[in-house]
Structures are given as structure tokens and as C-alpha cells.
Design a binder for these strands. Structure first.
Lengths: 218, 218
DNA sequence: TAACATCGGACTGTTAGCAGTCGCCCACTG
DNA sequence: CAGTGGGCGACTGCTAACAGTCCGATGTTA
């Protein structure tokens, strides 16, 4: 039987996942400001879910570093300072540099490179759109870089840093963040990978991240 | 009032934390073998806690990569293959190399170096003890390295990898694992940091991790 | 015998509610 | 007025139970 793509499976996300996504968005968008105490009963009523389900989502957010637990289990939205942003981008830098190195050394990397170029093109298109879309396409590029490395552990580590990255962007303000969205810089990364020069690819990423952190905090 | 050390605070760990620790140990010790399906009702009865509390712990283990969720929320103990071990150690390598680089560039690192040397000494003492203690002191050295970098994000990323590292050791078998416990190799790391040569420190760590992975899977 | 319907059993998703603890306010007391 | 102690509200820790879903076994029919 011929099936349309729209019939290939309905997405029934669990309430926990929905809550997780909603809270992540609320935090990284600043709707829940840093330092704010998260009261379980309050949140569960807002989201219209039970506390038990909510608590599971909170646990995950805690692991992602978006919220931190204080005394007696009281959760609050994490507050980033300048040093922490630098630290986050330093870790992000070594992770993505590993991805770039891995891709550089990959024997047949044409398919991967094509996908990366598509991601850059996507940033190009988004450059004329809203700031939010530019941020999304930028993060999408970097996530793709990690995914294409084929190292699941690497991808997972990066993704559990993604929330912190988004908070850093939020903290710095959107104008500063857009300094890092230059399409050209990302072309350089792809080019470095293309040459197969792993050391060069690594340096390009590290430099990119260092300057990205400086752009955000400077 | 003069208080004795034993009165400085009782440790009341939540059931969730206890369950987390117990499950982590059970998995990394092989008591719960890879691939095994974890039935919530079964585990909660074993641990004598409710499913709600257990589920929170499972969520955390999932994030740590010790268990993975299959269809319809069914959790099972993660199964590592050779490639995944290499991937884990590659990520671990870049994380620890960042720690080593950071320490190398630190202006007054004497206190940190002293602590690292103490960790190496501890490995030395443990060399005559049980395999388990050797593994613990080895991991403790590397955790200390990350902690002393002062980069909380780095430490957190490393710690969320720790479970996977322990599984790798388990997977490889204890004999192979002890190949990586050489005290001399760890002296080299400290020495590289001491010279302040960040590039050298980085290379030493990366080489250490590459050979560690090969020792485990070869 | 092959396709189909039905019925339990096994588990997970989710919820409401009880229990314990901490912080705060206020009265009391020497 | 410093210090003590009792009540009260707020909030988290934990639990038991309900509801829904999937899977396999068993029967059923053409």
C-alpha cells in the first residue's frame, strides 16, 4: 500500500517530553529568569501536569545544567557569569574540534561535506530572517558537525551542553550573539575539513569558539 | 561551642540518590548485564522504593549513558561495542586535554600540582591493593585533573562520562584495564603540566587516552 | 490452516495525596 | 530584650493506585 509521508507515524510525545521542551524554551528564552526559584506545585499547575511527571523533567534539566538544586531540593534557574560562559565555550570548542578532526580524517567524507554545506547554505538563507532563526540555523550547523562525526558519545555530550550554550546567548543579548553568525567563518570550517588537514580543522574550530566566547562576554 | 567532627552534619541522602548509586554500581559492576531489560516494578521492589522515585533515578542514569530507552519507554542496560569504547575515550581525551592545557597555563599552579602528585601517590599505594582500588584511584586522578582546571562545565561533562568509562572497563575485563594503571604514565602527565607547555600536556593526555582505548579493546 | 477477533498479563505513563521538614511569625518569659 | 518554643504555611520526598497500551496466547471462523 502506498502511504503518504504524513502517515508514517504520529508523534505522541509523552507529557514529560513536552514539559521538558517547554521548560527548556522558557529558560533559554529568558521567560524564566536566572536565579528564579522553581516551585514544583506552581510549575505543575502552569503546565497542567502532575508533580511526579514534572519532577522527571526537572531532573533532566538539572543534568543539562539549566537548573541547579539548592538546599533541600529547591531548584532554581542557573545563573551564568562571564567565567562560566568562557568555560562552556572552551568545552564546546574541544568537543567540536574533535568532530572536525574526525571528519577530516574520514576516508569518504563527501556525503558529510555535502550535508555541512547545506547547513551553511541554510544559515545563509536565515541571515535575512529573524535573529531567532539565525541562532537556530547556527546551532543546527554545529550540531550537524557533531552528528556527522559518527561519534554518538560526542553528539550526546554536545547536546547536553546545548542548553547552556543557549543560556550564554541569552545572557549576552541577541545583538552580541549575532556577531558569531558570520557565514564566512563557517565556510572556513568546512574548507578546513575538506582539505583533510585535521590539525588545521581543529585550530579553526578552537579559534572560532574562542572568539565566539569573547564576542559574547566582551 | 566546640563541636566534634562527627557532629558536623548527618548525611541524609534521599532515596533517589541512594537508588542512583546502587544502580550505577550494579551496572558498572556487571551485576546488571548489558542489554538487560530493566522493569520498573521489579527494580522498585528490589530497592524497596516506589516507582516514582525510581523513575527519577533512571532518568539520570539515562542521561549518563548507562541505560538507554527503547520503544515505549522500556529501559535496558546499555550495550557497548568496540567502536563506542573508542568514541568514549576520544571524547574523554579531549576533555582531559583541555583540563591539562588549562592547568598548564595557570599562573600559580603549585597547589594544584601538589594535589595531582598526591593523587599519583595514591595510585602508587593502591598498586599493591585490589584491582578495584587501582581502578578507583586511577579514575580519582583523572577526575581530580578535571576538577583542578576550575572549569565546572568541564568537570560536569567528564562526570557524566564516568559511568560510560566504568562500563568500558567492565566490558574489557579487569586484566586489560590494569594495563592503563601504570603510575609512570601519570607522572608524565603531571610533568607535562608542570613545564607549562600546554601543547605538550595536551599531546600527552591524548596519547594516553588513545593507548588506553587500544589497551581495552585490543 | 490462515486470517481474524478476543482476552489476559505485563509494563509504562500519570496522577492525587500523605508525610516530613524548614522558615517565619509571634507570643511568652526570664 | 535576647532567647525559647509553638503554631502555621510553603514546599519537597515519597508512595499507592488508576489508566492506557502493547504483546502473546487462545479460540474462532471461513
Amino acid at each position: 500500500m502506498a502511504v503518504t509521508a504524513s502517515l508514517l507515524g504520529l508523534e505522541k510525545k509523552s507529557l514529560r517530553e513536552q514539559a521538558l521542551a517547554a521548560l527548556r524554551t522558557a529558560i533559554t528564552s529568558g521567560e524564566l529568569e536566572p536565579g528564579r526559584h522553581l516551585v514544583e506545585t506552581e510549575l505543575s499547575e502552569m503546565l497542567q501536569i502532575s508533580r511526579g511527571t514534572l519532577r522527571e523533567a526537572l531532573r533532566q534539566l538539572e543534568q543539562e545544567g539549566l537548573i541547579s538544586a539548592g538546599a533541600r531540593g529547591r531548584m532554581s534557574v542557573r545563573h551564568l557569569d562571564v567565567k562560566e560562559i568562557r568555560d562552556i565555550f572552551a568545552v564546546r570548542g574541544v568537543l567540536e574540534s574533535l568532530a572536525a578532526r574526525t571528519l577530516s580524517d574520514m576516508p569518504d567524507k563527501e556525503a558529510a561535506l555535502a550535508e555541512l554545506r547545506a547547513a551553511v547554505d541554510n544559515m545563509d538563507k536565515a541571515a535575512k530572517s529573524s535573529l531567532q532563526e539565525r541562532i537556530e540555523s547556527d546551532l543546527e550547523f554545529h550540531r550537524t558537525l557533531c552528528r556527522l562525526s559518527g561519534n554518538e558519545t560526542l553528539l550526546h555530550s554536545w547536546e547536553s551542553l546545548e542548553g547552556s550554550i543557549r543560556m550564554s546567548i541569552m545572557f549576552a543579548g541577541l545583538e552580541r550573539a549575532t556577531r558569531n553568525m558570520s557565514v564566512g567563518r563557517h565556510h572556513d570550517i568546512v574548507a578546513a575539513i575538506e582539505t583533510g588537514n585535521a590539525a588545521k580543522a581543529r585550530e579553526t574550530i578552537i579559534a572560532h569558539m574562542d572568539s565566539a566566547a569573547e564576542n559574547l562576554v566582551g
